[in-house]
Design a protein around this nucleic acid. Sequence first.
DNA 1: CTTGGCACTCGGGAACACAGAGTGCTAGAC
DNA 2: GTCTAGCACTCTGTGTTCCCGAGTGCCAAG
Lengths: 337, 337
Amino acid sequence: MLDDRKLAVLRAIVEDYVSTNEPVGSKALAERHNLKVSPATVRNDMAALEEEGYITQPHTSAGRVPTDKGYRLFVDRLSQVKPLSAAERRAIETFLAGAVDLDDVVTRTVRLLAQLTRQVAVVQYPTLTRSTVRHVELVPLTERRVMLVLITNTGRVEQRVVELPEVVEDHRIANLRAVLNACLDGCGLSAVPELVADLPERLPVEDRPAAATILSVLLETLVERHDEKVVFAGAANLAGADFATGLRDVLEALEEQVVLMRLLGETSSDTPSALTVRIGSENPYLRGTSVVATGYGSGDNQLARLGVLGPTRMDYPVTMGAVRAVARYVSQILAAS
Amino acid sequence: MLDDRKLAVLRAIVEDYVSTNEPVGSKALAERHNLKVSPATVRNDMAALEEEGYITQPHTSAGRVPTDKGYRLFVDRLSQVKPLSAAERRAIETFLAGAVDLDDVVTRTVRLLAQLTRQVAVVQYPTLTRSTVRHVELVPLTERRVMLVLITNTGRVEQRVVELPEVVEDHRIANLRAVLNACLDGCGLSAVPELVADLPERLPVEDRPAAATILSVLLETLVERHDEKVVFAGAANLAGADFATGLRDVLEALEEQVVLMRLLGETSSDTPSALTVRIGSENPYLRGTSVVATGYGSGDNQLARLGVLGPTRMDYPVTMGAVRAVARYVSQILAAS
DNA sequence: CTTGGCACTCGGGAACACAGAGTGCTAGAC
DNA sequence: GTCTAGCACTCTGTGTTCCCGAGTGCCAAG
């Protein structure tokens, strides 16, 4: 159905259209990519490609433009991920290495990715569920209030102010802290609920109400934030591009955590570090945009996802290369700290 | 020079232009705002206002549009801050009251403000320099690493991983923590540097290298972040508006912490809670936009600033009302926690 | 299967006219 | 003096027409 030359024509159309943003015609195509056939032949191939739904023309007597299906074929079979230059890799490495804490790692990552791809970059904070407890801290604030601080092995810190049901002296708080840490230190966050389930029963009766309150806040913290936080950068890169759905909708989606999460998509359980590319209408919630995403995290321990969002008309090979490279470096940084 | 009627004409021009986004002509003006004079008279007044530089016409035989100077006069003398409706106030209150920690307060505030004003909202994190130390925590991670956590009275938490120059046993870390807290608890952050200056000397000789390292990281934390963090929301609201400088530039500025800080401006020392309005060219770094900002924080203890950014053509009375109200509520929330 | 030729289509830009909104000016009315 | 009415003038924006050129589809010949 689609012989090699037709595929070559499709590839050429995608490449030209991505770089020029103008429908590409048979003549220009035959010239620019020495295909060794005449424009007329190219036209025949184009007709076939259009028949199959890989390309379309905005109006009669205009050049051809790839459809979502055309981009899909291009990404799957006609292109290779383009690796970054050595200079870019060095720049990434030094830039990320300068981060001082988890917040900083994420912020730097998202900015870096936006700059590299000239698209909007999206990074999900490392998921709590896969992390382990490094330390739990209880800081008395007033006699009826303590601050609960949860530190994970990914450097993430969650804190909550807890209102106690009764006055609790500092030494009892200290005791509770010791018990908590003994119980939880090094445990996976997902294991926390069952580990603390019977904890109040192992305490003196008078401490149980306070402990129960604190534990409920702790559990709440775990579920609430467990994978909600997503940040983005590079909105300015949208200014030039034109979206089917309108710039406003895209900007609105970017500020909705939930939508952003859906766009990044789920890590497929079998190959978590594979690049996911969703093109145009394949995308939930935001047709007309493409998303290139991947999981990150050290080895088998996938923490979260990151990626970029842009118009369907994007340079997929370059974008995919940048996303993959950044994911690797940030995984490395997180594993080291 | 400018009698009452001319001022009324200017006010009418600003109001009409803001609501219609079209140059306003003498006839429509005379009708819509029963000025009780004829269009011809209005034209004379307009000529005078134009002479003085308060309004201008895009081209001959178009209506008039306010200049920056015109908006300035309008804001200073012709308008009153418009208070929010009772329903809006209730909505603000309940929405902000639901916040669980400082991050959440800031996030909710910035979103709320964006939604209320339909502009881009900008909120600076409460400044560390004005806060006080509530607790310092040292958590041993490995034998050569501790995590330093600094908790302030505003609920802000800063954490850093510190690489120690030598192996330090846990009980010495615990001791150091006790000393640090005894020394710093409740102190203003700005006082920290001098308070810890001679601290190593008061410790056993063997603890001094570790203490010095930890203290240097602590001081670094204080200066680095002291007022850098600024967040924004509502970028989608820019989609409709047209900026003299181009949408792209505005979006770029929003992602630059430094520029954002400059835009929010300094809290004037005498009246910290006053509304600051910078119109168009009065604005540094981003001509063509207006910024309405104010300080927030409880009473005399101004913590930081918040505000909105939008096109010069904005509804100043409403925007000012919203900014003021949100600043008050968030101050209240922060004071209570 | 490929190629050259040819008639056809359609978008986009240039030229043009025209209606409408708005202005400035001047002379008269209060 | 100040306001008003009238009038001539100047624009922009819109709709129309026209034409060029890029690009196509199809057909017949290599």
